[in-house]
């Protein structure tokens, strides 16, 4: 049951072993879900930590992404006299790509790193081993609640991000640049589709990203070398690996869902 860091001198076999180990760890996590129901309060606490505490950064970033997107689009589209389409383009680009991806990147930076650091310190200070000795399953008590919390929090955060982006676009476009309010909304509602854009774009993508980021964060925490340097490296690796995984997965998902 216990997860140990991979030791390999070869880069290729090392990274392959990392991926394989991570996959096995995912199976262990999923298998521990029934056992973690006992610790539902812990899951709730993690949801508060990764979700509710991330709201500020997500809302502020969403607002600014929508605002800057609208500003850029307005100046390009005004060349063609098509500024009335800018609200629609903001909504589509945020729902389909920017919302899930930027939320996931922020989530990896805000929540993923602290999960890794927390579990890594537990590992370094032998708390994980202590739990095993007290017959408390560390996977069910530490790993699975954090994974589930990330899985639940990401789609909700992404919805908040997208809503704030649209409001930011509205703020700049209608209030500042003078696009007609009705045209802004009517163009948007005419093009945005509930299934392809909201369900497939916002919800499905952010769910997948939430799973990937939480898995990487928890896995890196559990495989941290039990030194202060190891915790630092693991935290960095969480951000790097999450970012690569998010962007690569985004391409794959878009190719499949389009």
């Amino acid at each position: 049951m216990s997860v140990r860091p991979v030791q390999s001198s070869n880069v290729l076999t090392g990274s392959l072993a990392q991926i394989g180990n991570c996959g096995l760890f995912l199976l262990t996590l999923l298998a521990a879900i029934p056992r973690s129901f006992r610790y539902v309060r812990e899951t709730l606490r993690q949801l508060w930590f990764v979700g509710a505490m991330s709201l500020t950064i997500i809302m502020v970033c969403g607002l600014f992404v929508g605002m800057v997107l609208m500003l850029q689009l307005y100046h390009v589209l005004s060349i063609f006299g098509g500024t009335s389409a800018s609200g629609m383009v903001v909504a589509l680009s945020v729902y389909r790509e920017l919302g899930p991806v930027v939320t996931a990147l922020l989530f990896a930076g805000r929540a993923g790193t602290s999960i890794t650091a927390e579990i890594g310190l537990m590992r370094a200070t032998d708390q994980i081993d202590a739990m095993e000795m007290m017959a408390v399953d560390p996977i069910a008590y530490v790993a699975t609640p954090r994974f589930l919390a990330g899985l639940i929090a990401m789609p909700l955060l992404c919805c908040v991000f997208c809503a704030m982006s649209v409001l930011g676009g509205h703020l700049v476009g209608v209030t500042w640049l003078g696009i007609d309010n009705g045209t802004f909304w009517s163009n948007m509602t005419a093009v945005v589709d509930l299934h392809t854009d909201i369900v497939n774009g916002v919800l499905l993508k952010s769910l997948a990203f939430g799973a990937v980021v939480s898995l990487i964060a928890v896995y890196q925490g559990f495989t941290t070398p039990p030194t202060s340097e190891g915790v630092a490296y693991a935290t960095t690796r969480t951000v790097v690996a999450s970012s690569i995984a998010i962007l690569a997965l985004d391409f794959v998902l878009t190719a499949f869902l389009m």
Binding site: L44, W48, A52, L156, C159, W185, L203
Partner: peptide, 26 residues
């Protein structure tokens, strides 16, 4: 944290409802 989590979930779902009703063809 229970209140915070509840607020977060409510806000998230409110945002989802907002996206689905205000910005789509619904």
């Amino acid at each position: 944290y229970a209140v915070g989590t509840g607020l977060f979930i409510v806000l998230g779902f409110a945002a989802l409802v907002y996206l689905a009703t205000q910005t789509t063809s619904v």
